[in-house]
Design a protein around this nucleic acid. Structure first.
Lengths: 226, 226
DNA sequence: GACGAACACGAACGATTGCTCGTACTTTGA
DNA sequence: TCAAAGTACGAGCAATCGTTCGTGTTCGTC
């Protein structure tokens, strides 16, 4: 007889089980990257993971719970990614160079993790994905706020939030255009995106390099690096 | 016995039939607006139209053909909409005023035709909707190119195209943010969008009002007004 | 008024999908 | 060593959805 509900707390996962969960999440990522979330069948995910459909439900209560777990993984991964790429020194660079790095990093991350992009972009027309993308956006927005704050220490919370959100929304909107462009054209579209963000952000966070304002302790505590 | 395949050419539609087709399209629009395209059931559309599921297939071969027809309707509707709102005189206004009208018109159209927005925004993560949104974007892009050309007659085709596409992509990206904002905040986000487009487009198409360049005949033939 | 075509109905088919269930093997811990 | 819990299987259930089909009604035309 089955002992306990799988998603419930109080299930003492064995080593083998934890490995399986990871395999399933990896499979889900791959399938989602190929077919999109709505078309990613639970059976397809199970097959991709080399596992029977039933086993899938030993670890996740339903399909949505897989999405949730994946979003959590991506949130952490994205946080680490941006933390290493957007440190205090980088933030103080001339704005165009900073944007260059950000936009370039986005492209890299997108190529490396296609499923991330699917969830990150998850359109507002799909209720299920809307929450996932919101969560992923929030993670990036938090980092952007910190970067902006490094450049302009006095910026009020509300303004920071708006700047970050609008910047992300812009990039989210333009990026499909970037990815659908071929060869040379892609660079040109990327340049437009950078130019747009530059002229939008410049007047607020400054175009040039920013001098170290204070030798005081860091404004935000460093997160644990993994 | 059933006479002919319904979607096929050579079906002599009666008055009643043409009315039914319109009712079905209206129903599809309403259902899509409420649930999104993927979740818009053919049965739900039929029920909404006050028609049996079978009758639906008297007029459309399958669900995708309904989408196609709807896209076509929207393309025409959108063309008329922007043609009346973005005429030659409007195009020569100071840029910030022009943008004000464009962005405001978008919001109006979105409120009036929620389903249009669903298809227009159709994310690149859904293969089916991608084509639909591309088609709708193309329609708006054509009008934007004309507007830009009115302001800067010498602008090369390629540049025009890029400007139009990037502008639309930006608006597409930021608009969900606009619509999710409440009350006062919405105006603030809209202002950001306008500011961004202003600083992006200004250097190319000019910030101020544009004087009538030539009293020559209109550069594009006026479309038939309905 | 009669014939064919268009219109209309709605039960039900076939395919798909998320998920369950009965069963059996493996690991853990006492 | 042995029972309880964890892991694994895969056939198949239940529900949904797009679509078909047999039948009956209305309309256009002569």
């Amino acid at each position: 007889m089955a002992a306990k509900r799988p998603g419930e707390a109080g299930v003492r996962r064995q080593e083998r089980g934890r490995r399986r969960m990871q395999e399933i999440l990896d499979a889900a990522e791959a399938v989602i990257a190929e077919t999109g979330y709505e078309d990613a069948t639970t059976n397809a995910i199970a097959a991709r993971a080399g596992v029977s459909p039933g086993s899938l439900y030993q670890f996740f209560r339903n399909k949505d719970e897989i999405l949730e777990a994946l979003v959590q993984v991506f949130t952490e991964r994205s946080r680490d990614f941006w933390h290493t790429r957007l440190d205090a020194d980088t933030a103080l660079l001339p704005l165009d160079e900073l944007l260059d790095r950000i936009v370039h990093a986005m492209a890299v991350f997108k190529d490396e993790r296609p499923a991330y992009w699917v969830l990150f972009h998850g359109s507002p027309t799909s209720a299920r994905l809307a929450r996932a993308s919101e969560e992923l956006h929030a993670g990036v927005a938090a980092r952007l706020r910190t970067v902006f704050l490094w450049r302009v220490p006095g910026l009020p919370e509300e303004r920071l939030d708006l700047l970050a959100k609008v910047s992300i929304a812009t990039a989210t909107g333009v990026f499909p255009l970037v990815m659908s462009a071929e060869g040379e054209q892609r660079g040109r579209v990327l340049a437009e995106l950078k130019g747009m963000l530059l002229s939008y952000l410049g007047p607020v966070v400054g175009f040039g390099a920013v001098p170290r304002p204070v030798p005081a302790p860091a404004p935000t505590p460093a997160p644990p690096v993994t």
